[in-house]
Design a protein around this nucleic acid. Sequence first.
DNA 1: GTGGTCTAGACCACA
DNA 2: GTGGTCTAGACCACA
Lengths: 123, 123, 123, 123
Amino acid sequence: MFNLNPNTGTPIYRQLMDQIRRLVAGGHLRPGDPLPSVRELAVAHAVNAMTISKAYNLLEAEGILERHRGKPMTVALAVENQQNPEQWLQAPMEQLVKAARDLGLDDDELLVALRQYLDQQSR
Amino acid sequence: MFNLNPNTGTPIYRQLMDQIRRLVAGGHLRPGDPLPSVRELAVAHAVNAMTISKAYNLLEAEGILERHRGKPMTVALAVENQQNPEQWLQAPMEQLVKAARDLGLDDDELLVALRQYLDQQSR
Amino acid sequence: MFNLNPNTGTPIYRQLMDQIRRLVAGGHLRPGDPLPSVRELAVAHAVNAMTISKAYNLLEAEGILERHRGKPMTVALAVENQQNPEQWLQAPMEQLVKAARDLGLDDDELLVALRQYLDQQSR
Amino acid sequence: MFNLNPNTGTPIYRQLMDQIRRLVAGGHLRPGDPLPSVRELAVAHAVNAMTISKAYNLLEAEGILERHRGKPMTVALAVENQQNPEQWLQAPMEQLVKAARDLGLDDDELLVALRQYLDQQSR
DNA sequence: GTGGTCTAGACCACA
DNA sequence: GTGGTCTAGACCACA
């Protein structure tokens, strides 16, 4: 369902938050859409329920999710999904560019590297 | 000197390790080059000396740095800096592509976004 | 230190949050003042550390506490402690008045009851 | 009908129990008086019927309510409504006094605050 | 020493 | 079925 990796140094609950935020920003999850239950996600990713719950709680505090007693949480109706999706690309682009700079790649070399990577994936 | 951000969720010592590894892989730091002292870096980045020290220790264990009693650590003479630099780009490219997918961008849109970002930076 | 009762139906972490908020609003805890460590409080009240930590985290999100890596949390420097303390009395006054109404007491009888209660306490 | 608030942290069934107990203690509900049906209350307060039912069941177990097959529950004939009404004021008074203490108010200031609050309400 | 993350598991409130 | 609270305990990052 989601892409959760316990070994990256990024806390699992943050990984989940990032992905949900982006799925909402990208329109894949829309206002009113239900989210998988805490237990369901926990089992599916072999992760503790409290870890999932923490992510959901923080997203509720951010106004992105809504809680419904006894029912699954949903994407908030009032969520601002019309906000510029590119905003969510900033941080990972920054990371990538920094890595490229450290490695001595210039802009064009980085773009070539990314294109190659994308081509590999789609094959 | 380096680019250390305490708020990203990635431990500071890992950020430092990543950057040094890439600087070595990219040839910006070459075998025998001295590194800044632990204290110097700690002060410069307002970070605890143990944090820097931990990064240096782990890099020494990896064979990338060498320790010299009473003198600054250096890049190991035997370091394999001829290794494929693209290897160090994998993880950040993966992050970026995942973010783009969640946001509903296809390959071309991602490449355009990255080019725009790079253009902005160089301006 | 604090007054935490696991049997009231109000979650422990909320009880703690309420008390800290009021101590700050009342000026007993002032900007920059350190709070007891999570472990210290947990031991003192025979409560799990995560329960204390949850309260501290939520208060940080509210801007009332500040986190300092490796050091105790403190009352936020920017905290608005000049806000009207009476605000924090609203909820408990509402509760009390509702109870009194249900019991058929009028305003004067309630005030008398409260005065008697206060007199008992101070004896 | 009743005053049920899902957001206070106090379970709804407890809020309901408290209010019925106080209405009985205050003589507003007297032995033999019928209570609203579970469904009626559930609809009126947009609350699940099981929540109401749970409160009624617990009050029956306490001897405060009586069940009559096919008919509304009533206040128990044997209920001890002559018990000291002030007893039900203890808990909310304690809460209020604790809050006032945290805020640094002394007895007189608290009494003044309560009188002001009552005056506001009656206006 | 400080707080943070995560687990396994119990039990509660509510639909 | 849903999410919430809490525990006991492990291990991590940082000062």
